[in-house]
Write a protein that binds this DNA or RNA. Sequence first.
DNA 1: ATGGCCCGTAGAACGGGA
Length: 259
Amino acid sequence: MKIATWNVNSLKVRLPQVLDWLASTQADVVCLQETKLTDDKFPVDALAQAGYDTAFTGQPTYNGVAILARRASVGAPASVLSGNPLYPDEQKRLISASVGGVRVICAYFPNGQAVGSDKYGYKLAWIDALLRWLEPQVAGGGEPVALLGDFNIAPEARDVHDPKLWEGQVLFSEPERERFRALQALGLVDAFRLFEQPEKSYTWWDYRQMAFRRNMGLRIDHILVSPALRGRVKACSIDREMRKREQPSDHAPVVARIE
DNA sequence: ATGGCCCGTAGAACGGGA
């Protein structure tokens, strides 16, 4: 089973690319972030025609997350839950569903804007609530858990093109990295780091400064798996191809293969 | 030295992203 996460930065704009990418990768489960679509505008039919059943939650202009499940291989998303019951939030950043025997959690962590800002405080509180909600799910004897999404956290120096420049900045500040470690302390494992990876592997590059061509990026999109899945992960990689296209998302997909 | 882009909502700039 191939599972993936991709911040598409508007599913309306990116739908043709998403359909192309689904056709070429044949991913079984895909978590999307920043759909920026209200539910009435979600492209249910186009994705169904491509072979994917969907679960989604959105709002005007901002945020929005979705889980796509390849009907022929894993069936439709089941037991769909929008949001975190421990953190009522009008921002649509979280959706989870059971797919292919895995509890798939699709998350769009808040950006935080600037360290010390209100949005930064919201980011930390949002993650703390996520931790409280996840703990029993990861520890419990239920379905194995996969947490996929745009975490808006670069966990280590090697995940940042210029760690000195980014030290203390939002996305790489110590309180954010500490929370990433708290997710790991629950038992969740960074699938990407289970394998030998190229140096300077990133998932996001600013649209400005020709950042992609210069590989000035951050690794902020992640796939974390619970202990029961760890041994079943056979590969994990960043798919840079879509970032090379015309009118790309600023994020690249991350893909993991689970046996 | 600074900021340089893209998207949505607009129906011009601006908030937000990261």
